[in-house]
Design a binder for these strands. Structure first.
Lengths: 116, 116
DNA sequence: ACGATAGGTAGGGAAATCCCTACGCGTCAA
DNA sequence: TTGACGCGTAGGGATTTCCCTACCTATCGT
């Protein structure tokens, strides 16, 4: 279905792309401030611009961002579809942490209710 | 709130732990087959057992599994709470992929419906 | 007490990651 | 056309990851 530039599995690329705080921050910026050029993104980081370019490459190859060329700028845009795959991956685990919260809930029920 | 064994951010540890197919497979096994010892897990992988031990260590330090000592065995159990953090992290992005699906939906609506 | 079993740790090598500086290429403004 | 701007790529170094083979400790059965 998806064409993989190298041979890494789809999920590997997505999770690996997310496993870096700079790249997650890029996603947040694109989400909150909308599509923007590389320099505008780079202004938020204490990092050389070419380094950020490589982070953008990782995000691109994970399908998490797309680029549109406008003159000499490259406008990057959030592509959230792979994150839906992450949520799908999470689904079978959901009942496990809900079970845990249920335990916690009933534990709290049995406590005296003089909490702040 | 959470005690970090080293200095890495909480989310970094979780995403990094998930960014490996062996470790995701361990989580799946613990989810589908329940808590089990290291050797039982190792049987599913074409990998030396000490290597799997290190994967388990990564999962432990991310809070994704817990161990219970029973005799000379260590029973590993899925701890899904950190995955709830992942879902929380995903939440603000949800509307983006839903918007995309809406676009796709209206696109499909405009197509002739003679599909297989 | 002894050997076997379960599983973690040490040490090391190959490859990947993450950062840098230098540089190349395309685009815009003068 | 020439120079400045925007951004990617090359190449390299430090660190981390992921695998291995040894080896150690702890527990169990005899």
């Amino acid at each position: 279905m998806a064409s993989s530039p190298t041979s890494t599995a789809l999920e590997d690329r997505i999770f690996a792309a997310l496993a870096n705080s700079t790249r997650r921050e890029v996603l947040r910026l694109l989400r909150e401030e909308g599509p923007q050029a590389v320099q505008a993104l780079a202004d938020h980081f204490d990092m050389a611009r070419p380094s950020l370019s490589e982070h953008l490459k990782v995000l691109r190859e994970a399908g998490l961002v797309s680029e549109e060329r406008r003159g000499r700028q490259r406008i990057y845009r959030l592509e959230a579809a792979p994150l839906a795959d992450v949520q799908d991956w999470l689904h079978p685990y959901e009942r496990f942490w809900r079970d845990r919260f249920k335990e916690l809930g009933s534990l709290l029920d049995r406590l005296p209710d003089d909490e702040a």
